[in-house]
Amino acid sequence: MTGGAILEEGEPADSPRAIAQAGPRAAMLLHRAADAALAGLPTMVATPPSVADTVAGYVELARKFTPQGAHYLENHRGHLMFVKPEERPFVTAELIRRTTFTATERELKERIAALAEAGYSEIALQVVPGQEHAIEDWGRLRRAFV
């Protein structure tokens, strides 16, 4: 189960479209890091070194979330659905590349083929509220695997 966006050739991974479609999935790592730092809950996934500073920056932001003692309310607002304005600076192109299926159609076909080769039988792609039209892009990609 994953999410992402199919980029046009030359389109950056933090284009407005990519942020809308893949940003909520990428922000999961930020939210989990804040849960770990502020509530001691496990992240379950390692933070790639290339985004460590980004994640640390978000955690500092989350320390200011109110009401104090219930940081999870603001931390999880929009979780897997939209990118909050205050977290937008931390949802970087690198974070999206590292944590989601966001790439060109050619690269995504290679990545999905690698999953199939490993033994996966299904890929479930998240479509977030307001971006339901993304199903058409994924449907086009699906045809390559029929």
Binding site: T2, A113, S121, E122, V127
Partner: peptide, 9 residues
Amino acid sequence: MQFALAIPT
């Protein structure tokens, strides 16, 4: 490989 949808309900 089959494709599926994951939906914030």
